[in-house]
Design a protein around this nucleic acid. Sequence first.
DNA 1: CGATAGATTGATACATTTCAAGTGAAGTGG
DNA 2: CCACTTCACTTGAAATGTATCAATCTATCG
Lengths: 268, 268
Amino acid sequence: MAPPLQTSAFLSPGLGVHPSRQADLQRCLLCDQRDANLCSGLDKQGLAALAQSSKRLVLPPGTTMVEEGEPAVSFFNVTQGTVKLFKSLPDGRRQITGFADPGQFLGLSPSDVYSFGAETVDTVQVCRFQRPQLEGLLSDFPVFERNLLVAVTDRLAEAQEQMLLLGRKTAKEKVASFLLDRLQAHERAQATAAAHDHDEPAATTEHVASVPMTRIDIADYLGLTIETVSRTISALRREKIIANMENHYIQILAPATLRQIASGQQNG
Amino acid sequence: MAPPLQTSAFLSPGLGVHPSRQADLQRCLLCDQRDANLCSGLDKQGLAALAQSSKRLVLPPGTTMVEEGEPAVSFFNVTQGTVKLFKSLPDGRRQITGFADPGQFLGLSPSDVYSFGAETVDTVQVCRFQRPQLEGLLSDFPVFERNLLVAVTDRLAEAQEQMLLLGRKTAKEKVASFLLDRLQAHERAQATAAAHDHDEPAATTEHVASVPMTRIDIADYLGLTIETVSRTISALRREKIIANMENHYIQILAPATLRQIASGQQNG
DNA sequence: CGATAGATTGATACATTTCAAGTGAAGTGG
DNA sequence: CCACTTCACTTGAAATGTATCAATCTATCG
């Protein structure tokens, strides 16, 4: 099952890193997501190996990254933008199982074909790994494998939370939960950007949710129809719990209230 | 599929296993689940370490194994029976996120407190690990860590399938999918038992689903009410797709039809 | 044998879907 | 520069699948 690869030291630290690989390593060293999830805790040698084994891609909105049933040859780490993961029924009904924001991986599958599809929501940057090289990295760098284990565990916990939402929450509770998720996603993005700008983290007095996806995607994520999503968002706006902003952002006026709604302690 | 078994005599005295640990090692060597998931591919040293670090427990039906919010101190590997995992809302609404049948683990959590609850459905046998010892095992035995990574990945894929069910399937499709899951669970159990009996695998001409859980559990797993579950099962019985057996077993008369229903290609 | 828990069945209610129409913004071509 | 299309979204009215409320049945167990 797991080929126990030898940890051959193919890049002696400190000594001459292959010139043509310098650019690769730089890419990792300067990456926004360098200390996030998969890539955290790696020494220079590990980072160099990661850099060598991956390729950075920029993908326009609506790009299919993974198709259900196709051979699972690639593995991705998202560094910018949002990717939607989904499963479909033969008649076209679709369930979005999650959104992969910067710092998250995608592409693991229990078999040799993908068990899900993936498509970019907006413009997305990823690091792409090929399967065999990924397995080598896992074997060679225990920290990397541990990071992946932790990341998959996180995703599993998220999936369980989403099952609670899908199975037991009302439309209003679903939308409230979603907006809070997107608030958190935006806050994380802000924090990451601030850290790399060396700027002071601007005191977040405004609560803003990043919602780059369409109503169709939201509906397919929450197990609702687009009409119900639209109506529910309108209702929250009428109740002054949220407010419209530019294109793909929503302001959260009453986060505490929204949290109460999301956890089923208030019906508004 | 079949893991490469060690063919060596399983207790060569030369290897100096500590005498007081012999019983522990025997427990692992004779375990039904020895070659399943987490415990597969381990050499004798690894198996001995596993045996030493874990304790076998037998738990009666309805035992709380894990409570949401409590410190995540234990990790379990199920060797017999079925455990239900769930998340709840403050007002008591509950979603069962999965059933852990023999060979499956439970107890991983992204933080230091459990993000879910777990309770035995019937009489359950588990191997219990304490957190610190588990981490030691993961670090010491790469095969073990890889097994866990594979197992968590499997569970994540299952969770995604269940999200599709919860968000997009009708009551009838949900129940059909559930019965097929339970058919597979029973078939796996049969296969395991047969392998350890050294008996020929009895030609499975009858398709039987093992359903040890109550209607309440089924409803909380499928995002339905007990009434809807009951009505739907009755409808399938009326249509001669399934038939009643003793207490907690259901016979599948038309597996192909059930599969079509489960995947949304037929409404019956 | 009565008590209790699990399961079934029926009648009604309701949350969400479905069907339908309409709005507004962005892009296109004459 | 302005009709015209398109796409995402919103809103309304009617339909429906599942939930809720309620009664009954069955099996197990003290």
